[in-house]
Amino acid sequence: MVLGFKQETFRDDYTYCNSPREIKRFPFPFAEDRYMYSVNIEPHGKGKEGSVFEFALDIDEHYVAECIDKEITLEQDPGRYESLSHMMDAQWDFVELSMESLARDYPEHFSLKKNGLQWTWENKPLGIKDTFTFGDASTLAMDPFEYMGRQAQGDFVLLDQRDETLYADAGFVTTQADWSLAFNVGMSWKEWHGPVPRVTELGVMDRALKYLLNLQLGSPVRRLNWTMTINPRLDTSPESFPRWGSDRNTVNADNVGDRVHLRVELQSLFRLPRSNAIMFGVRCYLISLNEIATYPRWAKRLHRVLKDLHPDLIEYKGMTKFHPTVVEWLANFDDGVILELGTQPE
């Protein structure tokens, strides 16, 4: 499939917006009128054609702009990329997975040629072409994980498996929903999930960990997570909080549809072959309430989910300041009609 890549920004003048095609394929996460945490993990198999689940790594019209935004974020704060020294095998696993899947799934835009361990990678949208020796980090201008992390949409964390748990021992994180790689790097599963409300009691995290420790090569899984972000901003990290935190105070009845975005993370987990590590991908999709409202079914459903959301979750997701304004605005679209189960737009 040939994609047209838009020129747009995720900061300052925020020119980011979605085309009708992109809106229609948005991974709307709410299948029912209520939301609560669950182990909502499913196989990350080849999904419906054109959907964000079609391929292992999804690329869309925002690809080039997002890669440029990543570069800016990383330049301002090099700590967004970290890798502990025992993660080099996992880095090469990441290179193999990302290059092979992008070249296979988007042959018009990417190509990979292998001559033994001598690999030639071409990324046409970003104008990159390099030949290197697979497994020899000195043949690339930077760490292999950083090299490909810069060329894929979304964030990536490489989890080392040992002592019956997972450790976040490498990461490339520039589009995160208010968590810090520099703070979390080297932490174990229980440590980095510590702040999530209401899940310890539910036993959700223990069950999810047990499941992931047995994650199999060749059988990746995914789940959706969500929050809300003011303005289409990818970099909502704690490190850059001064640049975006106060935006939450600017939402009013006139600008809510334009400013408030539903932020959905397509989280994917792949067992990696050489390192036995797990790649945790967090692909971020942003959509404004105005764009959501082009599909009345979604607007109704979102209204119901947000209206009854548990106060702990409103607080945890950083929505306290603007939650009432959003619910009030969405109420205009909700006629109370019964919606059947499912996330489809129409």
């Binding site: 025992h86 095998d89 498996q161 199999q216 090569l217 060749g218 036995n276």
Partner: peptide, 13 residues
């Protein structure tokens, strides 16, 4: 055969 599974991995550190 199944895909490889590792329940006996080396401690990388």
């Amino acid at each position: 055969i199944t895909y490889p599974v590792n329940l006996f991995s080396l401690a990388k550190k």
